[in-house]
Structures are given as C-alpha cells and as structure tokens.
Amino acid sequence: MKSAQSRIKSISNAKYGYLFIIPFVLVYLIFHFYPTIYTTVLGFTDCKGLNNTEWNLLKGNIFANYQSILQNKSFQTAVKNTIVIWIMNFIPQITLAMLLTAWFTARRITVKGQGIFKVIFYMPNIITAATIAILFHALFSYPTGPVNDLLTKRLGILEGSYNFFISKTASKIIVAFIQFWTWYGYTMIILISGVLGINPDIYEAADIDGANGVQIFFRITIPNLKTVLLFTLVTSLIGGLNMFDIPKLYLNGGPDNSTKTASVFIYEQAFSGKYLYNRASAASMLMFIVIAICSAILFYLMRDKDAAALAKLKKQERKAAAQRAKSQSWR
C-alpha cells in the first residue's frame, strides 16, 4: 500500500517538500542553530563580566574554560545530581505510566470513569513550575508546615518536626517526587496515544490465540510501542538533564549543592555573581555531550532489544500459525 502511495506522487511535487520545511529550517537556523554555535565559540573565549558582549579567543590554552569546568567540583556534583534525580523520578514515572496505560487501554477489563482519571492525572503538568516549587516549599516548611503538622500533631508519627530543608537526601527525594508528580500524567497520555495506534488486528489475533492480558501487554503492546517509547525516553532524558525550574525555585540548588542541577549551575555561572559567560558556555557544551551520549545509548539499546523482541514474536507467530495449520490438517 505504501509503495502504491509513493508512486501516485509525482516528482514535480518534491519542490513542495522543500517549500514546506522552509519556516522550520529558517527559524531553526536563526534562533537555535546560530545561538548554539555562538555558545560553542564563547566557550573558547574570555567573555565574562556583567553584561559584557565583547570577547577575544583565548590565547595559549584554548581549552582553559573546559579544563576549569571539568575540575570544578560543583559542576561534577551538579552533573551527578542531575542524573540521580532524573533516574529517581523517571523509573517510577515510566512504571506508573505504563501501568496506567495498560489499565486504560485494557480491552477486557475496562476502567469506568477513566476520562476523569486521565484529566486529573495530567493536571499537575499544567501548573507553572514556579507555583509548584513555592507550594512544595510551603508544604515542607520547618519547623511549622503542613507536612510537619501532619507528621507530628495530626498523626503523631514523629516526636519533633523534621527539617526537610537541611537533609540532602530528603531534598533530592522531594525534587524527584515533584518531577515525577508533574510528569507522570503527560507520559501516560503519550503512551496511550501510542497504544491506540497499534493495529487492532494484532490484538484480535492474540485473542484468538488465547493470550491473557499480561502476555498481550508485554508481548504485543510494548514491542509495538517502540518508537513512542523511544520518544518518551529521549524527551524525558533531555528534559530531565535540563531540569531547572524546580531545583532552582525549591531550594535554590541547596542544601549543600544537593539539588543543584547542571542547568542551575550553568545559570549561576552565566547570569549571576561574576557573570562567567565563557565558563558557562563550556559547561553547556559538556552537558550537550553528556546528553548526546546518553541518547545514543538509549537509541542503541532500544533498537537492539526491540529488533530481538520483534524477531522473537514473529517466530512465535509463525510457530503458532504452523501449529494451527498442523492441528487443522490433523483434524
């Protein structure tokens, strides 16, 4: 069918393909590509100081900014924090989103009122991160605040108030939780969209084979979600490694740098204190490299596993078909 479609299109239409991508390409080049190059160049210059836009390429050691960033303990901590917080948020997030997707797209045991649940679950995502950060800061206040109020006076679990703002672990967990809480609904909706796009025939075939819900989910739904899952993973990874609003506004990267993410670090270097644009640019490029490597790994892992799973599935299908044919002929 696909090849038939391609044949319908005449070659003369190719120019419209180019025409239609012009806005995207133009804006991309001006507002995204050029600034990226600019940032890359700044990383090799002496550009720093309040509102300074003049710069010279570094003489002597051209990698001086990169060296100073790589040796910067706060940057190392920030990169580690970013990855740790992302993992702490993403694993529960994707697990929960998958579970909800399985429930909401289940064909035998339908969930009543799933519309209202979907709307509610996506709601945390529509709120400005600034609002969420202030809200959670107020919720976890010490010594008096809603959560401490609940733990001590209302439920009596704790003797005295717990200082959530001084504990590095608690702060990380709270930031990760906020991220999880904000994004699980979004992830769920993307995944549901992906499942709805899977050809119903496949499911019917599985039903005929007598596969149960769990089998269908793992053998059919997940392998067929490949592209969408990859999309979710990559966008979440990028979003996660660029995490800025919540850590910045919740505790300003503290306590003791425990929630300082790479983006918060870059912002602090570039837009406060001594305005070290050059060092911040170098840090940005390093982050880009980290993200590119992580994404490449994801692409690689997903492709391999998927291909393998698909191959296995096809083999099973063939086997099943052969068996069916066999049993039929036997009968």
């Binding site: 160049v41 700044l42 660029n242 911040a280």
Partner: peptide, 15 residues
C-alpha cells in the same frame, strides 16, 4: 531533539 535549550541559552541571550 537532543540539543537542550540551556545549551543555546547563553548564545541566545548574547544574540
């Protein structure tokens, strides 16, 4: 998709 907005932010600001 992979290029994070923060990477471009400094260049963007200066530009």
């Amino acid at each position: 998709l992979m290029i994070p907005p923060q990477v471009t932010s400094i260049g963007m600001y200066q530009f």
